[in-house]
Simulated scan of single mutants.
Amino acid sequence: MILLLVALGGAVGAPLRYLADRFVQQRHDSVFPWGTTTVNVAGAALLGVLAGIGTALPGNLAAFLGTGFCGALTTYSTFGYETVRLAQERARFLAVANVAFTVVAGIGAAVLGYSTTASFAT
């Protein structure tokens, strides 16, 4: 049952990632990967919220949302590919900025999500 819920979460998260990425990127006239950065930071925030809720969230729902949905919404492989592509195109500053911003913003979003919901779990 949990495997099916993870698969269903992924089936929702993957197309949402694609659509959100395209939506954001089309609004920026830049080679910086704003779409991927947005979905990764949003996914980190949501996963932080889920972690903050902790055991107050039923296991099946946690599997659906955390592993399935957030796992498919966020994308480390695309983040890595786009960073390498920026470096290859001699946009080294943007490549470094992509790594720094994504890591700092992602961790910050996860901490913020966690800290806003952790008190509800007790």
Score class of each variant (00 low, 15 high):
108 G>R: 04
76 Y>W: 10
87 A>C: 15
75 T>V: 11
97 A>T: 05
95 A>S: 08
67 T>L: 09
102 T>A: 09
62 A>R: 15
81 Y>P: 01
53 I>W: 15
102 T>I: 06
56 A>S: 14
88 Q>R: 13
86 L>F: 13
51 A>V: 09
107 I>H: 14
81 Y>C: 01
94 L>R: 13
40 N>I: 05
80 G>W: 02
107 I>S: 04
67 T>F: 07
84 V>T: 08
78 T>K: 00
80 G>L: 03
105 A>W: 14
60 N>Y: 04
36 T>E: 00
103 V>H: 00
45 A>V: 01
24 V>L: 10
46 L>M: 13
99 V>Q: 04
30 S>T: 06
65 L>P: 06
42 A>I: 15
31 V>R: 11
56 A>W: 08
36 T>P: 02
53 I>S: 10
48 G>I: 14
74 T>C: 07
68 G>M: 06
108 G>I: 11
79 F>P: 01
55 T>L: 11
72 A>M: 13
25 Q>I: 03
59 G>W: 09
71 G>D: 03
55 T>K: 13
106 G>Y: 14
101 F>W: 09
81 Y>T: 09
95 A>E: 09
67 T>M: 08
79 F>L: 05
87 A>D: 10
71 G>Y: 05
104 V>K: 06
27 R>G: 01
78 T>L: 02
55 T>D: 15
72 A>W: 06
38 T>Q: 01
109 A>M: 11
41 V>H: 08
61 L>C: 00
35 G>C: 09
74 T>K: 02
